[in-house]
């Protein structure tokens, strides 16, 4: 009997397959988290006990590693993710004002989702675009020289 997709059983089964593909590599835990997040948009809680069992480490260790890294989500993000760089080089070109504007327009703080549920706003510390800041990443695509008009356009597009 196959479990319906999205149920804990189905997730545990899929986690097993992912682990089997990666367990031969040295230090595979981050690779497993990345693979799960690529598939589900987050690391589902139901996957953690399976990982602990297969890697022969404690569930606390699995949880500890996952929660250490900013990238791994325990819950899915909105359909669109806007990351604004908040590091020094972008600050020198007005990133703080942009950050305020974005929070105001979306009605959410960083690491939150807009009231319409369409956009998750995140802070990022450096995208390596320090000579063409302020920088952003919109659904994985990099954008340079973000001014107020460009930000407004980005937010309009992702909320459309």
């Amino acid at each position: 009997m196959t479990a319906a997709p999205g149920t804990d059983d189905a997730i545990a089964r899929r986690t097993d397959e992912i682990i089997s593909g990666l367990i031969g590599l040295e230090g595979p835990l981050l690779l497993i988290f990345h693979a799960l997040q690529a598939e589900y948009g987050h690391v589902p809680a139901a996957a953690l006990p399976r990982i602990a069992e297969r890697l022969n480490i404690s569930r606390a260790e699995v949880h500890g590693v996952m929660s250490f890294y900013h990238d791994f989500r325990s819950h899915p993000a909105a359909a669109h993710v806007v990351k604004l760089c908040r590091a020094e080089a972008c600050q020198s070109l007005g990133a703080d004002q942009l950050a305020e504007r974005a929070q105001e327009k979306l009605g959410t703080g960083f690491h939150g989702t807009s009231a319409d549920g369409k956009v998750t706003l995140e802070a990022v510390y450096c995208l390596g675009l320090c000579a063409c800041g302020p920088a952003a990443m919109v659904d994985g695509k990099v954008v340079g020289r973000v001014d107020e008009a460009r930000l407004d356009q980005i937010l309009k597009e992702v909320r459309a």
Binding site: A87, E88, C126, G128, L129, C130
Partner: peptide
């Protein structure tokens, strides 16, 4: 892991 703001040589 070139995380320093202002650096992009590695990238």
């Amino acid at each position: 892991d070139e995380g320093d703001s202002g650096t992009f040589a590695d990238r």
